[in-house]
Design a binder for these strands. Structure first.
Length: 278
DNA sequence: TCCCAGGGTAGTC
DNA sequence: GACTACCATGGG
């Protein structure tokens, strides 16, 4: 087992996990077990450090985006003329954008459409339990995220039983498209962001918002600004926005924040949602 | 009972 | 291109 220690000023594990970018993690002892693809790690806070324990050191160094300068990002947010951006950047300065697996992001965010985060987590958990590989980490049993090869073996009816609702057909169809080999998620890594997004949009069940989430969380394209119902609300309430078309709202934010868009989006999304928690 | 949730598709114009 | 009915499911 390897141990990675990192200054916690810009790495708050709770905020990084709770901000809505990841669906597979659970409280464990003084911290959390975090699951990605077919592996896991244990993360906790000790004094002024965030500590990661895992087998795959290189994977999780990259996963938690440890080479990126978050001081610079947070300063950019603090210099914003918009109060909501400054407030959320202060409140959520420990949020990092995880470099997650593109395949897991694709299927996870297809499930996310018109859905609620706790329910998305539950559907993904049932899917992993049904189709993933059983493994153990620190004595805790968990299930890996199933590959598209496995997902493609089951039809829509199967996914409906797991609670997918109308998204069941999207999952089986997309898994089959990947299974045929004419759509390669790895090859998309070389594309520019707008080309990547355009390519993702050809998949059934993937629209502009879901494509933005996959681009941001699965390909670390921080020049993405996913606009969902929360961001739309925030756009009207906190930015005094008047545009009605979500595509134009996205363009507005991209123009405002450029390559920092993805980071700012997570700051404000997390903050805005936290205001309506009980 | 209606409204909402990390929206998208297919049909119409 | 823009507009809209409809799409499962569960919680408030």
């Amino acid at each position: 087992m390897k141990t990675i220690e990192f200054d916690s000023t810009y790495f708050n594990i709770k905020d990084t996990l709770d901000c809505g970018q990841i669906f597979r993690y659970k409280p464990y002892k003084d911290g959390y077990l975090v699951f990605s693809r077919d592996t896991a790690c244990y993360v906790y806070t000790k004094d002024d450090k965030t500590v990661i324990q895992c087998e795959d050191e290189e994977y999780f160094k990259k996963y938690f985006d440890l080479d990126t300068d978050y001081l610079k990002i947070n300063d950019f947010a603090l210099s914003s003329p918009h109060n909501i951006v400054k407030t959320s950047a202060t409140q959520a300065k420990g949020v990092r954008i995880l470099r997650q697996d593109s395949e897991e992001m694709l299927f996870s965010f297809i499930i996310s459409q018109n859905n609620m985060i706790p329910r998305i987590k539950a559907i993904i958990e049932r899917t992993c339990e049904a189709l993933g590989e059983e493994k153990y980490f620190y004595g805790e049993k968990y299930y890996t995220f199933p590959s598209f090869e496995v997902l493609a073996k089951y039809d829509a009816e199967f996914y409906k039983k797991l609670g997918y609702g109308y998204r069941a057909e999207y999952i089986s169809e997309v898994a089959n498209v990947l299974g045929k080999g004419d759509f390669n998620l790895k090859k998309l890594e070389n594309l520019k962001t707008f080309e990547l997004k355009k390519s993702l949009l050809t998949l059934k069940g993937v629209g502009p918002k879901v494509a933005d989430c996959i681009s941001l969380f699965g390909y670390h394209r921080t020049d993405s600004f996913p606009v969902d119902t929360w961001i739309e609300k925030l756009y009207y309430e906190d930015f005094g926005g008047t545009l009605k078309d979500r595509k134009k709202i996205t363009e507005y934010f991209l123009n405002e924040f450029g390559d920092y868009s993805g980071y700012i989006q997570q700051y404000v999304f997390y903050y805005k949602r936290s205001l309506s928690d009980d």
